[in-house]
Design a protein around this nucleic acid. Structure first.
Lengths: 193, 193
DNA sequence: AACATAGGGAACCAATCGGTACAAAACACA
DNA sequence: TGTGTTTTGTACCGATTGGTTCCCTATGTT
């Protein structure tokens, strides 16, 4: 018994995600978001309360998209060797850069930014990176070289790989020479081989 | 034949560094800086032109302090095994967190932030990380396990270690569970051993 | 047709942003 | 002690920040 939304909420979140992804949380202004989402102030605030709430929605969306894609890749039994799955993920991150996508990872950008001061954002970041870490652990279980390691060692290695991931994607944003990223990825390959 | 500065420029830069270190570039407002540096708008703009110029000065200062400290640690021949020097650096980063310092690395925070849009800042970040990478390479030359590797492989490994460093310090800022950082560091230790 | 709720758009808000103008004060040198 | 030069402090600037409020219109349901 009321007028329906003229936009799908998820679409708006998706578009907001693109804006935050490129500009970061603090760097994305309201006008940026309004333009990117294709709606006006009134609609935005009615639908999402405020900027931070929108950002939390976006982080959830990102978890459901990019993070989930990573988890799927890492646990994809179609690739029998887990180390290969991990390498695929790192290689993808590197290729994104050579393809011109220097936005890095929304989670990693948020990690360096607002999560320092905001508990809810920090928690969302932790949650996303934790999911990736667990998926890394699963992948290692499917790696001939690592499957017989003690559980602790595998878990530690997964943490290291996440840290590697965060570093790689953060440097991508900083426009570090692509060589450095490629070298890092190659070295991860050597280490896992 | 004029009135002299009432503050030492380097002192002011040092204080500005502290502010930028905790708040990041965009997160540090002029009032934040003025209070932290203990001077007024007029003095700041006369001495440093504008915020960005000040930040570039700060980055230089950071290179001369923190980065140089890292380079010194990595190339310190007092510790004969280069791998030990590298581990000392990672262990220090972890201990900073357990000691309550969650600011991470100014360079890494800048990497995720303004270096995306500003060439000069991006270049300064690259320069600092490059210096650390080279020092990592030097340390590896002094590691029994790595000194006989081909030059390329060592260089690649150095890139990976830098990426690891950036990841670690970025996650520190994000208030990721310290366990994750400790695990990552331990795993680096295993890898280098 | 009437009602309830939604969106759309603009006007408006106080606060803050980085930055500037300028007068007064403080020093070095003669 | 003057004189000239620079610093310092403050008032002020326009622009932008995130956020609110309003009214009008559109579109469902009953």
């Amino acid at each position: 018994m009321a007028r329906p939304r003229s936009f799908r909420t998820e679409d708006a979140v998706e578009k907001a995600m693109q804006v935050f992804w490129t500009h970061g949380y603090e760097g994305a202004s309201l006008p940026d978001l309004l333009e990117g989402m294709g709606l006006t102030r009134g609609s935005l605030y009615k639908a999402f309360t405020d900027k931070k709430t929108l950002f939390l929605r976006v982080l959830e969306h990102y978890e459901g998209m990019a993070v989930q894609a990573g988890v799927t890749m890492l646990t994809d039994c179609g690739v029998p060797n887990g180390a290969d799955r991990i390498m695929a993920m790192f290689t993808n991150s590197y290729r994104a850069v050579t393809d011109g996508d220097r936005r890095g990872c929304l989670l990693c950008t948020a990690a360096a930014g607002p999560s320092m001061y905001d508990d809810e954002i920090a928690e969302a970041v932790s949650r996303g990176l934790g999911a990736l870490r667990d998926a890394m652990g699963e992948a290692l279980k499917a790696s001939p070289k690592h499957k017989d390691l003690p559980e602790d060692a595998r878990r530690e290695l997964a943490c290291m790989l996440i840290s590697q991931y965060v570093g790689l994607r953060t440097m991508a944003r900083a426009r570090i020479a692509p060589d450095m990223l490629r070298n890092a990825v190659r070295s991860v390959g050597v280490m896992l081989a």
